[in-house]
């Protein structure tokens, strides 16, 4: 399906619009809530937000593409956030990324064909003393080695079967 004829259930946005009614500066908060609902920001949702908030579609798109938190495509069931902050870099984040790419066959910003994993590198997860570190969904994994990272991903894959 192409982006222009996408049909999202826009009624899910109603409570979000109600919560931020009258707040002219809530665009980012609305986009965050919308992403929580849909898992990403479908184009028709962006149009709906533009119409409701009175912002131009160009402005909504501009904000949605400015911030790294927002994504315009769906992500896999398990989102791997790989930290590439300074401390993680010094402690070998590149080798962890290489190991994940080897194990999953996809790189930064991509999703595996089975829809199980997406990899995203991030600037800093704010837990430098655990470096190198990655988060998979809500869980944080620290003091990684390439072998350990592969093992963690394999276990999640086994558990999903």
């Amino acid at each position: 399906m192409c982006d222009c004829c996408q049909k999202s259930d826009l009624s899910k946005l109603t409570p979000v619009f109600e919560a931020f009614a009258g707040d002219d500066h809530a665009l980012i908060s609305i986009l965050q809530k919308a992403q929580e609902i849909y898992g990403y920001l479908p184009v028709d949702v962006l149009y709906a937000i533009a119409e409701k908030t009175g912002a131009s579609p160009a402005k909504v798109m501009g904000v949605a593409t400015f911030y790294t938190q927002f994504r315009l495509k769906p992500v896999g069931k398990n989102l791997i956030l790989l930290c590439k902050g300074t401390a993680c870099h010094v402690n070998g984040a590149d080798s962890i990324e290489k190991a994940l790419v080897e194990e999953l066959g996809v790189g930064d910003g991509e999703t595996t064909d089975d829809g199980l994993f997406s990899i995203k590198t991030v600037a800093c997860l704010g837990c430098c003393s655990l470096s190198p570190v990655m988060m998979i969904n809500e869980d944080t994994y620290g003091s990684l080695t390439p072998a350990k990272a592969k093992e963690i991903v394999r276990k999640i894959r086994e558990a999903s079967k």
């Binding site: 500066h25 665009l27 908060s29 965050q32 911030y67 790294t68 927002f70």
Partner: peptide, 22 residues
């Protein structure tokens, strides 16, 4: 809640972000 932009640590960029802008 910020949305992942390092430059928003700069005070006027942060204010723009508070207002819902880039």
């Amino acid at each position: 809640a910020g949305a992942g932009a390092f430059v928003c640590g700069e005070e006027t960029a942060l204010i723009e972000s508070l207002e819902g802008n880039r």
